[in-house]
Computed example of a mutant assay.
Amino acid sequence: FEDKVEKSQKENISIHSSLKEQLLNLQSQNLKITQEAENLTKALKGDSKMQGNWGELVLERVLEKSGLEKDREYSVQQSFTREDGSRVLPDVIINLPDGKKMVVDSKVSLTAYERYINAEEEFQEKFLKEHISSLKNHVDQLSSKKYEDLYEMESPDFVLMFVPIEPAFAIAINNDNSIYNKAFEQNIVIVTPSTLLATLRTIDSMWNNEKQQRNAIEIARQAGALYDKFEGFISDLTKVGKKMDEAKIEYKGAMNKLVEGRGNIITSIEKLKKMGAKAKKSLPDKYLERAQQDDFDEKLN
């Protein structure tokens, strides 16, 4: 009974220790979630730097899910110099298979949107107008950057303006559907996480097709080279066969000289042995018999 009680106590201590560890881990996770929530709240309440960092973080998460490889299919915060010497720093440059590049910009202020969400109903319209105006202003600012004038990269067909919160763009476009069209006229496409992901997946498919095409060309090239080498191998092998046939004929001729005719070489050499020449070895019987028979036949003739 004492053993069972002691064993039970040890198990309870182990369980309590494990539970304490889990509670501490849960506390740590809750603190982390709280901190992230506070950071998000700060980002949406007008902390411009925090808001920008959070938007770039969301953008990077979307890029990671797209299948594109960083520093190969896209690059982050790559600096470019204009012809007048001024420098620009696009958030993301996406490389396209045809050598062109696409710019993604995520510096969108959502302060007015946060105020709209948390405002009393009587003030919501005011903040909604400010939110729409903020998006339009960012479109104009993005257009004024003239990314197409950058001499270090191919002119992008479009610049993607990234809005990290889907409802923020949805509420704006529902109340002013001219935003998207006016941006499009300035070669700017407004995207959210879902629409950007779809665009990036399409680009990833383009890269996969490009790689497959390059692989097909390389396979065709290597197959042609292999065919040419195989033809050369057959040609060389045919030459070896001819040489072997010629050697066979030469060999047969040489052997005939050894064993054929009256007084052939083998018969003559064997006579030396019979006459007393000291030799430790003997000529093969099959050649001796053939030579002696041929010598005999010649004498009869």
Rank of each mutant, 00 (worst) to 15 (best):
E60D: 03
A223E: 07
L89C: 04
P90Q: 03
K278F: 11
D3V: 08
S48T: 05
T111N: 06
Q35C: 13
E289Y: 13
D84W: 02
V159I: 07
V189E: 14
K281T: 01
M50Y: 01
V103A: 00
P156W: 08
M206V: 06
Y113N: 07
F127N: 04
L237H: 00
S109G: 06
I188F: 09
S194F: 12
D294H: 09
M275P: 01
L226N: 01
D105G: 02
I94R: 08
L57I: 02
E21D: 05
Y287R: 01
K182E: 14
K243E: 06
Q292F: 15
S235K: 04
N30I: 15
I203N: 14
L288V: 12
K42I: 15
L44Y: 01
E130N: 05
A225F: 10
Y116N: 03
D295G: 04
H131M: 00
S155D: 03
Q222L: 11
V104T: 00
Q77R: 07
G263H: 11
E130K: 05
K136S: 14
A220W: 00
A170M: 05
V159N: 12
I249E: 15
S86E: 11
I190M: 06
L200D: 10
I249S: 08
T195Y: 05
N209E: 06
I249G: 05
